[in-house]
Design a protein around this nucleic acid. Structure first.
Lengths: 199, 199
DNA sequence: GGAATATTTGACACGGTGTCAAAAACATGT
DNA sequence: ACATGTTTTTGACACCGTGTCAAATATTCC
């Protein structure tokens, strides 16, 4: 066998970076190939299609992201955990390599991918999967908080609410790019869920 | 002058329909031209570019949508108004012409449009504009409700929260397509904002 | 060294965007 | 009625991106 002349993971990282910055439909395999110093055909040979390449890059990202969220949700009072959760979520919207005005939010990249006819059912499912897993993390955190008397209410409903807000924040970030306001909304959400009186 | 052989508004409606169903990047001007019985070149002559055509179609939609929202927010108790608001929002995700499995949610179409490098700054702004106007409508409704003693709290913050949730719902709809769950989240949000005790 | 195997490479077909000049259709003034 | 000017239509073109394919290439194993 002839060995690969490029590193599989390197390409995934480079590809994700491009997808993130320019959107899935906005980046061509030629772009990625150029950046990675690889021939375009090699990418097709190794990954099959742009869609498949995106899916692999996305899975990689989702895994890292979930680990980070788990860590954020794992220490301190319930309020601190939720605050850390929102912080990480909002930071993640823009964190990464490119400092330039990058138009695509990480948290919504999947939507750019899932625009085609229905071929990208897998992308939709991968995204749904990540949302489900995040929701489960938040739900467990709320349940644990409830057991310690820091929360009274429906953990499942509240978790879904919180995750919905984070997705909404991603959309607003995309539209306004106003991070301070996002943090206000996040704080307000925490207050609502934790039943703070002076809201 | 030679007169147009097609109706400007008809084309806008047909174009919006296609953009909605297949996403902005997923529909070609050839598709729209075929559907409208117009030559592709004529569209370029009349609108300039796909982006410009989308913007016009979107503005048209946004106007109609705002009117409908205003109506939904204008009658009954504050709870009824907010319920009608969420109902309309969720219904709008899928309402329209095509009954087939249409992958793109109306509420997020703009994101598909705003994926490019930065050329589509106008699309981003049009979307931000709609969000702002919706937020203002909700804020005013909450303020009016507060004046009647149906709500106590920060109207601006609550309105932003509510609109954030609707954007999040649009994302979830896209990912799961589970409408009953969306309605549950909406009801939960209303309860949170209106400070219902048994949540 | 030779065979088997996987990767690389370049060419190709196809479709979408956007541009352009020539042809066509109408309104107007004479 | 006819010529003129203006705008739309039409078809051709260049360019770029996706995806496929066969030939060339590099490596491992026997």
């Amino acid at each position: 066998m002839r060995p690969r002349e490029f590193n599989h993971d390197d390409v995934l990282r480079i590809a994700f970076d491009q997808f993130w910055r320019k959107g899935v439909r906005g980046t061509s395999l030629s772009d990625i190939a150029r950046d990675a110093g690889v021939q375009r055909g090699s990418l097709y040979n190794a990954f099959g299609s742009k869609e498949a390449l995106f899916l692999q890059a996305y899975e990689r990202y989702a895994g890292d992201y979930l680990v980070a969220l788990q860590k954020a949700l794992g220490a301190g009072s319930l309020r601190k955990r939720l605050t850390a959760f929102f912080d990480l979520t909002i930071t993640n919207f823009r964190s990464g390599s490119p400092p330039r005005g990058c138009p695509t939010t990480r948290g919504l990249m999947e939507l750019g991918a899932a625009e085609g006819e229905g071929l990208d059912e897998e992308a939709r499912q991968a995204f749904a999967n990540l949302v489900s897993r995040i929701t489960a993390l938040v739900r467990d955190t709320l349940s644990a908080g409830a057991a310690r008397g820091e929360f009274s209410g429906n953990s499942a409903a509240a978790a879904l609410h919180i995750v919905t807000v984070t997705r909404g924040l991603a959309v607003l970030e995309r539209a306004f790019g106003d991070e301070p306001q996002l943090r206000k909304i996040a704080a307000h959400t925490i207050d609502l869920v934790l039943d703070k009186k002076d809201r």
